[in-house]
């Protein structure tokens, strides 16, 4: 399996979050609160689930997702999932 660099994962996530939720990439910082900055409502989570599946081919589950607060949490979660950790 090809190893994906953490920085590439971060970059890819930032690009699709910025496009999908129409926020400037500069607003997306590792310690920023993801829900607040992206202004996520419940239906936005549908978008999030779909874009993650489309971009990384992984399914999110609610237990994991409830622990994600910051963008860094999100990067780590996605990175761990695609690395099979």
């Amino acid at each position: 399996m090809l190893e994906v660099k953490y920085t590439d994962v971060v970059e890819k996530i930032n690009v699709f979050l910025s496009e999908e939720f129409e926020v400037d990439k500069s607003q997306i910082t590792a310690d920023g609160n993801m829900k607040e900055i992206l202004d996520l409502d419940s239906l936005d989570y549908v978008d999030l689930v779909v874009v993650i599946e489309n971009n990384f081919g992984i399914k999110l589950n609610s237990e994991d997702f409830s622990r994600i607060q910051t963008f860094e949490d999100f990067y780590n979660y996605i990175n761990n999932r695609i690395s099979g950790k």
Binding site: D41, S42, V46, V49, S62
Partner: peptide, 29 residues
């Protein structure tokens, strides 16, 4: 919001979601 994930998984499994379109709870879109 766990229902969002459940709905997505159900749909991905080819299942059908039955829902009413006439009632909402306060605060929802």
């Amino acid at each position: 919001l766990s229902h969002i994930f459940e709905i997505n998984n159900a749909v991905k499994n080819g299942e059908i979601i039955c829902v009413h379109g006439d009632r909402f709870i306060p605060g929802s879109k």
